[in-house]
Amino acid sequence: MRTAAAYAPRVPGVVHVSHLTKVFRVPEREGGMTAALRSLFKRQWREVRAVDDISFDIEAGEVVGFLGPNGAGKTTTLKMLSGLLYPTSGDGHVLGHVPSKRERDYLRRMTLVMGNRNQLQWDLPALDSFELNRAIYRLPREDFRRTRDELIDLLDIGDLVRKPVRQLSLGERMKVEVVGSLLHLPQVLFLDEPTIGLDVTMQRRLRAFVAEYNERYGATVLLTSHYMADVEALCKRVIVIHHGRILFDGQLDDLADSFSTTKTIEALLEDGERVSLSVPRAEISQATAKLLAEHDVLDLTIEDPPIEDVIEQVFATEATA
């Protein structure tokens, strides 16, 4: 096993984003025939600020969750960082490179995995596609074989890589896909909803794999997901984005503190009754004291509301604001 240090020298600021903005110009028209015909001659354009002046830094080896509802600007940001989109303004650096220049040295050290798309040869066993990647990334045969077998072992997909990809289930395909995207041992991983559509077991498997990869190779991971379980399992830090703007950037644990106005008191009373109270943060100690004074309490816990609820609340507040 090679050490993590060999792959990721601990340099600060692997990802550096400063005032990054992407504006799309999209054609716009009313529904109906008249409007359709009119748009043939005169197009109406609307500017959409998909990403609006965002800034953040990610250190080497960090796993950061990128959260936001559909259309928040997550994928647009990932695409700018992987060199697929030119920013309208602002600045993005990854591993010291400007992604949009698409320099080989950069592309060789990163990977982009998109949960809903696959890039393996459909009719052939994945091993053949892996071989193609070996050539494209110009990996020495010996290294390639070692990495490939290591990753195949980690995900336990030894028998899957020999079947034509089209015969694999969605979850199996995703596992094989992920291995294909990591053969060159990238130091930066952009994972765009890698667990989308997978069953719970498969999600857990993939999650454990990402964690293991991060640990082994010291890779930096930026992950978007709609499954909070992914984020809770993998990311200490989250960036919450909505309407292209960053609403929160910090420890996952602090998210509730900053956005949730309530905490939940769960108590088990002597008569066997369970109570659950949602109490404003400021009144927690008061409420607890009152509960203890007025009832015989066997067990008591005070918790932040589930992270899903907090996130939902964040977006709801933003929408009404």
């Binding site: 697929l84 698409r102 592309l107 990163m110 990977t111 982009l112 798309r117 890039q119 494209i136």
Partner: peptide
């Protein structure tokens, strides 16, 4: 369908690929 993304994130000349 956006799948060109995969070709463009490879460390190879995109036109060649």
């Amino acid at each position: 369908d956006g799948k060109l993304d995969f070709a463009l994130t490879k460390p190879e000349d995109a036109q060649l690929l």
